[in-house]
């Protein structure tokens, strides 16, 4: 019951926060109109409740955001160079990455984060199989694909550590045998 109330409350408070951010000032008028609009929006555009994991680690969350920003900067420069630089030869790949999480939220955020980093676009998501299908730019050969998949799995791992459920964390540590070996090798 508490989880359900919290799950409904987070998007609601988020809407109020956006309204206040847009006004750029914390006044009673902004707060009251924000609450009224948030009520109107959540009543009009009713969405199924998001199931939150009930766990958040701010430190790992910060690490995730910093790493994401770093990846965006690096990959943006790479894609920009591919676009402008000489000798561009098109060579792409469509790859399937089976994730370890069973949470819709973590899956969605992994897909968002992967899509946000230049060079990869999520084409489709298989929800039952927790699999992302990506289009990756500038993949020269099949040998580059395992490293690409590992990048996505690393993103997923950072997200699970930041806000994954206990169940997802357990999945992560069970799958760690293979992942740890690959990490050690790289």
């Amino acid at each position: 019951m508490i989880a359900r109330i919290v799950s409904g409350l987070v998007p609601f408070l988020g809407l109020v926060l956006i309204w206040v951010l847009i006004w750029g000032q914390v006044t009673w008028l902004a707060l009251v109109t924000g609450v009224a609009l948030a009520l109107l929006v959540s009543a009009t555009f009713y969405l199924p409740a998001v199931r939150l994991s009930g766990r958040i680690n701010l430190w790992f969350g910060l690490l995730f955001v910093l790493r994401l920003l770093g990846d965006i900067v690096l990959a943006s420069l790479q894609i920009a160079w591919i676009a402008i630089g000489p000798g561009y030869k098109p060579s792409n790949a469509v790859i399937a990455v089976p994730l370890r999480t069973r949470s819709d939220l973590i899956m969605t955020f992994t897909a968002e984060a992967v899509s946000l980093v230049p060079g990869s676009i999520v084409l489709d998501i298989d929800r039952e199989a927790s699999t992302l299908y990506l289009h990756a730019l500038n993949v020269k050969s099949v040998e580059e694909i395992p490293a690409l998949k590992q990048k996505v799995l690393d993103t997923e791992r950072r997200l699970i550590r930041a806000a994954g459920s206990a169940d997802d964390l357990a999945r992560l540590s069970e799958g760690r045998v293979a992942a740890a070996e690959e990490e050690g090798a790289s």
Partner: peptide, 11 residues
């Protein structure tokens, strides 16, 4: 121009 297409057959 695709080196592989692992989505084919799953769509």
């Amino acid at each position: 121009i695709l080196v592989t297409d692992e989505f084919r057959g799953h769509d």
